[in-house]
Design a protein around this nucleic acid. Structure first.
Lengths: 345, 345
DNA sequence: GGCCATGTTCGGACTGTCCGAGATTTTGCC
DNA sequence: GGCAAAATCTCGGACAGTCCGAACATGGCC
């Protein structure tokens, strides 16, 4: 049957000290006489005392805020990119909306900080965050990889909402591109498409360590009924290069980021969805109705926020020993660019 | 300047009710008269009241335990697999050790539950967990994919320490095979190996949605200096089939799970590390010293545990809306099966 | 009017922290 | 040796919510 576990207060009674001295001693506060601290630690060990981290986190938060209108604040750091495309700006907005909603649910709030890439801005950010008492930092995606090594990470918990960044290596949250493409290709196979073609900008694949291309190949190799057409991966698209590729390999469905590809397919005589299909790899980029993948930026922002808050609750600042990547699969979005069922055989 | 945020108690004073009635009303308890509940909710809205989830989590834990020797208990569910290989048993043990250490740090403890695959065992597990007051469930890896859909997930938060399982879809934590293989291949390239060969059991690649093979291909395609040798992916290895592949394609380094491959390489005249290299894809499987990847089961177990506890603290049971996968990269382990620096050109 | 069941509201108790303040000790000066 | 100041050491107020047993109120029945 259950017996009472030793608590701070019961230890204090045993030692003839106040619960504050015991707490301070166990936390290594320099206020406590070293001899007293040693006695306390020994007694705690002998009693089998185990600290409750949840109680510690709450009491710390309560005491720090001291009755003011406290809400933990998270900084959403957005790197200044004047020429950021519209879809990327929308993606960022969705990320922040997701972060804000989740932060509110968990008793926090989010404030945006726009910063440049130059090191001078990073140091300024450091002092701003410290003066505001902000310890949680959400880093929004950046096309160029920013260098944040000069931020004093011992004071902050940070998380990327982008694929892995290394300077410094923090936890990250992003879409599961690999798995989402596999699922999309599976869905297309069920719809009777046997010649899928992939269209990528080189840089987009590189940023994800080639996951788009790798998933595409893996699917082809594991499904003998699928014709292994080579993907078109180029620095910059041209209508001509696309047309050459399209005519030569005759894909029956094209997967690409830009819906501009639909125009190019139609220029080659395709009649969507009668003769060919199209799938966008990021429906935030579409400029016309189509089927595709919703990379779910709101869900990503929400998840990043809850992981960050969990870190703060565990009082974990600094660069993690083993940074992890959390991925969420994209959500399929139906559209008028695909047939609705497989043709009769 | 800061002003005091409304709290449960201040709302109660305003309404002339007890703080319990206000708390019950806001939580939707049926104990509260509907008219009173409506008044409370309206007043809370007008005052801008915001609940503190951390306080709620702690107080709930304190009240539920009611002074007993409470420690949150997590169940580590291990599926009964009598013919599980030794390395897999070691992997499971490491996972549990990591889970136990992290659970202790966070004020929880872990208990193992061995269960069969049959549905009847799942229902029994359900009642055991409920009677024990256990809400957090860590699911250890299983070679066959178990079906846990019949567990009453509304009462539990669960997490897989394996690659994605779908019945039901929960959050999961596993090694980042794709990224780890890319990093390993990069390291081998730096050491001057230009003809890496990959040896896989088909089932091992399938389980990971072909991530081993995909990473291998992606690396070859993105590094023109690397000869694109086809991997050897078979149902079951034979020395003869390996020898044929090895003699035909002449890899200068072999990456495989089993160190048995070293014997086969030596049978073909290889002299490690003088003439060829070897890298294990899971050093827990090695039966002799070699270089390789440490998939870090302890770190995986620890991370799974902290994610699960964070869910419990947020009172999130049930099947998540968007199950995520958290991956941690493997740690490189040096060994005597590789040259220590690139040969002079 | 008393009793019982149901509905509604209340209150005890709480696993730790921060920091201002009080008590005690130590040090330096006359 | 006494006194004042500084340093050291320890203490205590206060705490953003929850659970569930208990108290109180109400209505129906005998």
């Amino acid at each position: 049957m259950a017996s009472t576990a030793p608590t701070l207060r019961s230890l204090a009674r045993t030692l003839g000290l106040s619960r504050t001295t015991v707490s301070d001693a166990l936390r290594g506060s320099p206020r406590v006489d070293p001899g007293t601290a040693a006695r306390v630690k020994q007694a705690a060990k002998e009693a089998g005392y185990r600290r409750n981290p949840l109680a510690g986190a709450l009491m710390s938060e309560l005491r720090r805020s001291r009755g003011t209108a406290f809400r933990g604040v998270l900084a959403a750091v957005d790197f200044n990119e004047p020429d950021r495309p519209g879809y990327a700006a929308r993606f960022h907005r969705e990320l922040v909306l997701g972060a804000e909603a989740r932060a509110t649910e968990l008793g926090f709030k989010v404030e945006k900080f726009a910063v440049g890439h130059a090191g001078v801005f990073v140091q300024r950010l450091d002092s701003i965050l410290q003066s505001r008492g902000i310890h949680g930092v959400i880093l929004l995606p950046a096309w160029d990889e920013p260098d944040l090594s000069n931020l004093d990470w011992s004071r902050f918990a940070g998380i990327y909402t982008d694929y892995i960044i290394e300077r410094p290596a923090l936890h990250s949250v992003c879409s599961d591109h690999y798995r989402s493409l596999l699922a999309a290709l599976q869905r297309l196979a069920v719809l009777g498409y046997h010649r899928p073609g992939l269209l990528l900008q080189k840089r987009q694949d590189e940023r994800l360590q080639y996951r788009w291309g790798a998933a595409f190949r893996a699917f082809q190799e594991s499904h003998p009924a699928i014709r292994p057409l080579p993907p078109l991966i180029v620095e910059t698209f041209t209508r001509e290069e696309f047309a050459r590729w399209f005519r030569r390999y005759k894909p029956d469905v094209v997967l690409a980021h830009h819906t501009e590809a639909i125009d190019w397919m139609e220029s080659c005589g395709a009649d969507l969805p009668v003769t060919h299909g199209f799938v966008s790899l990021n429906v935030l980029m579409k400029t016309r109705p189509c089927a595709g993948l919703d990379l779910q930026p709101r869900a990503l922002g929400a998840r990043a926020t809850e992981l960050l808050i969990a870190q703060l609750h565990r009082n974990e600042t600094g660069i993690p020993d083993w940074p992890s990547t959390t991925t969420i699969p994209a959500r399929w979005v139906d559209g008028p660019t695909l047939r609705t069922k497989a043709p009769a055989k």
